[in-house]
Write a protein that binds this DNA or RNA. Sequence first.
DNA 1: GACAACATACCAACTGGTCGGTATGTCGAT
DNA 2: ATCGACATACCGACCAGTTGGTATGTTGTC
Lengths: 228, 228
Amino acid sequence: MSPNRPSTHPAQQGAPTQQGASPPQQRAPRGSARDKLIAAAHTTVRKQGYAATTVDQICAAAGVTKGAFFHHFASKEALAVAAAEAWTERARPMFEMPPHTRARDPLDRLIGHIDFRFAMLDGPVEEFTCFVGTMVQEAFATSEAIRAACEASIAAYCDALAPDIAAAMEVYGAPEGVTALGLARHIQAVLQGSFILAKTTNDPAIARESVTHLKRYVRMLFAPPGPA
Amino acid sequence: MSPNRPSTHPAQQGAPTQQGASPPQQRAPRGSARDKLIAAAHTTVRKQGYAATTVDQICAAAGVTKGAFFHHFASKEALAVAAAEAWTERARPMFEMPPHTRARDPLDRLIGHIDFRFAMLDGPVEEFTCFVGTMVQEAFATSEAIRAACEASIAAYCDALAPDIAAAMEVYGAPEGVTALGLARHIQAVLQGSFILAKTTNDPAIARESVTHLKRYVRMLFAPPGPA
DNA sequence: GACAACATACCAACTGGTCGGTATGTCGAT
DNA sequence: ATCGACATACCGACCAGTTGGTATGTTGTC
């Protein structure tokens, strides 16, 4: 659950409000502040965590003022909830775009998805880790609204993954006690855990190692049980 | 990076400052403040996260004043580092005490350990989750000292787990590419990830589900490959 | 074994800066 | 001329860290 691609709107401008030059420098188009604040929350919270991120920092990263912030969001917590919902949307293309989603065999689609997640584990840690996973760690006991929003986002991911797993189970069978949603949740757990390990070492390699184990597990689950 | 080492003292007493009895109720024994502060940091940070936890809260939970805090620790960050080191010590008995550690078969010891971790996944979420895993999420990019301390704690856990895995690999073999330390790290990743899922639902059940998958994976890894 | 000199452990009150949030003003589109 | 979308200026609460003190050992000396 962590594509760095905010397919977001055409209007996009990372830089702070300063414009150097001559002609009729226009400011950012009206109506763009909300999206920019959410995007800024994603990047800032992924790097620093939720509590350590101040509203001023988010505003600065978004290139808007505090007035705009509290025009769009009633509180910092409200932004967090909105950002969690936006995160779910941002993850959706992962289940539609990549080539493996067109594979005929459901197990190929599932393994393809894991490979896809594996390939994301590269570059700076804060660019592939999960916004909602980071946030729920801090807020699960102190903000019921944030916790619920994060739960919904994770659940949406698992729900999106489950159909392919269910189909694979029908084709290849699976051991007693394995369910599609349960395995989807386990995949999510391994990803989240691999993010934490990557943070401890500040290096994605340790995360790839774990996802490799995950891939092997899925392969073994759906392998024909008997002799070769 | 500086836990002030007052080469600590024999005196020990878990409880807050109150004493039960009749006569001139004395305060907590000298030398106990440091340990109490670390214990308070463990519980408070596990529940609220690191950044959201204030020094005053930790002091209140420990039953000491801020003066005592800054007598023992140069900064909030220094306490975090000391608490991460203490966390490692706190985990050590897990590898020595439980009955399964005496098993003759290394795979039995390994599975026994996973069962042991499984059994811990019960009750309030903040009582079985990992202090260093929680903290490193927030601090990996902002405090190198904390990040390194958390890395060391996680590494110590994996190092403690690896020998049994290595022994199991020698007895039962293992697929190409599997290493003892690598599998130990994967086990740690699954646990950390299961904690996050438990936080999203505020319920340990989802964590147990993932650890069950982990156990099945380990069993499959070390199962004889051929026909039954 | 008593006492001066010192060190450690802790406490209460304070401070400078920061943070989430508010009150109010301005600008552009309809 | 009105309203939504911002910007500016500001506030009270809070927070990490400081200061200046007291109480309780510990140690060296005679």
